[in-house]
Amino acid sequence: MSASRLVAACAALLAGTTIPAGACPQALASYAQAGSGVLLGFDGATAATDPMAHRFHVVVNGSGVRMDGVVMTVSDPVRPWGMVMHQCPEGDVTGAEIEACTVWEGEMRTVDASGGEAFLPLAGGSAAEAADLLRLSGFGAALARSPAWGGTASGPPTDDFQLKGCQE
């Protein structure tokens, strides 16, 4: 996503606009946390050759911090496993280097209006309707411990992201 599109998406999120879930595919959904200024946006449909089910980014509003995220399929049981990374080296990297730049990893779940949880869709996940609420268990605490946080947002980070918009 270009910098200008990212700024426009962030502006829409901060304006508090909310859209119905069915109006947006998951691959283009934008989310925000109430009070923390943390924004999450999916980066569009992945290519057929991309091993990731989804790619997304997390922005700590007002800090200039942008983190990259991926959702992959893990098994036993089969489920979506997300990772958020900050300032990872590029190119050939070791497992230790990835571990050092990983801010959070865990299951990615959707939450419906009645509070029921389900896994973020993987098969055909890019075209699936955007969830009203995403829950990244343990994300808030992991981000708060990370140097990426810096305490610059308006409130502590949480695990939940509310659907706010749909990118072009």
Rank of each mutant, 00 (worst) to 15 (best):
A23D: 11
G44F: 05
V38P: 03
L13M: 14
C10N: 10
P20H: 00
R66K: 15
V103A: 02
A153D: 09
G44Q: 00
A148K: 02
R109H: 05
V71E: 10
F139M: 00
R135F: 06
V7S: 10
N61C: 15
G165S: 07
G37W: 05
S2Q: 01
D160I: 03
F139K: 02
G95N: 13
E117W: 03
A148Q: 04
A34V: 12
A53M: 08
A53Y: 03
A113M: 00
T110H: 00
F119L: 08
F42E: 04
Q87Y: 01
E129V: 09
A9Q: 08
M1L: 09
R135A: 11
G41H: 14
G82M: 13
F42K: 09
G151Q: 02
G140W: 02
L163A: 06
A8C: 00
S75V: 10
Q167S: 14
N61F: 14
P20T: 00
G44D: 01
G16H: 06
H86L: 14
P20C: 03
G115C: 05
A9C: 03
L120R: 04
G155T: 06
A144K: 14
T94G: 12
G165R: 02
A131W: 00
C101S: 07
G125V: 04
G82P: 05
G91A: 07
P157W: 02
D159Q: 03
V60A: 05
S75F: 15
V71M: 08
A100H: 07
G151V: 01
M108G: 13
S137R: 15
S154E: 13
G35H: 07
R109D: 10
E105W: 10
P80N: 09
M72E: 15
